[in-house]
Design a protein around this nucleic acid. Sequence first.
DNA 1: GATACTATTGATAATCATTTTCATTAATAC
DNA 2: GTATTAATGAAAATGATTATCAATAGTATC
Lengths: 156, 156
Amino acid sequence: MFRGGWGQHSWWQGKFRGCGYRITLGREAILDVLSKSDKHLSAEDIYTKVHSKYPNVGLTTVYRTLDVLVNLGLVFKSDFGDKRARYELAEGPKGAHHHHHLICTNCNRVIDYTDFIDEEIELLNRTEKGLSKKYNFKITNHLIQFYGLCSNCVGK
Amino acid sequence: MFRGGWGQHSWWQGKFRGCGYRITLGREAILDVLSKSDKHLSAEDIYTKVHSKYPNVGLTTVYRTLDVLVNLGLVFKSDFGDKRARYELAEGPKGAHHHHHLICTNCNRVIDYTDFIDEEIELLNRTEKGLSKKYNFKITNHLIQFYGLCSNCVGK
DNA sequence: GATACTATTGATAATCATTTTCATTAATAC
DNA sequence: GTATTAATGAAAATGATTATCAATAGTATC
């Protein structure tokens, strides 16, 4: 079978195979779209991009693959207040670049910020440790979002 | 018109009237349910409780009222990963008691915690200030959630 | 209290992202 | 190559939330 231009051993394939998942054309295409975008894509966004190049990859497969990717921890799924879920790569070939979100409640614009992250992460780690112990919770992830009005909407 | 047992001038009515909203039986009943629960109720939960006492209050009204309450800032709307939105009073007669959430990704159990809150809030305030300036954003709200496995699910 | 004005309401239908179903196809181990 | 079984697409189903619209009920004014 023809393999696009991704090379036989992309960074994610190890983790993928290790968990018993098969490598398929559709999955490669979906991961390719995700890794080439720095936006927060909806399932439909991804479907449109993938489908234009590989018309035999359906929307269902996009949803299913995203689900697998989220479970593997390769992709983050977020909710920004419009109805659709948004997906973004958790870690790329270059490793994770962690960020948090700033969301406009009027126009739904989303800004990624990495400022202040270090301080935040440090506090989060401490908090996580405390919460884990007190509530006997195994914490695997966190979410921090700020809501408000962006520069375009604040004057309205 | 008969007014349940709520008294003519509940704590929220001022804010409500001030914004030009009318006081209706349905709205009183919905606010009563919210203020008597410390859980994270779905629209359907609230509908069930209200409807059992006032059968002529419909689900549509519950959604509409919750929408108003969220816009007024009287109620917080959150998403814990199951499909339905959850609602909880932002401030009660006794004033706000701010908390954050700890969510089990397996069984969707939600724990409110208030520990560590002070430290978190302080950092958040600093971060908010910095972000506001840098991105010219008027921040009105924030969300912090930790995800993981609760004590029941961690062994599974 | 009666009247006029308009917000609010309930029942129903519509919306729309996401899931299920199920027969077919294709990746992998041998 | 063959067998095994995961993965797939098309279409239908799901289910929370919204829109529609005629009927009802708060509120201000007299």
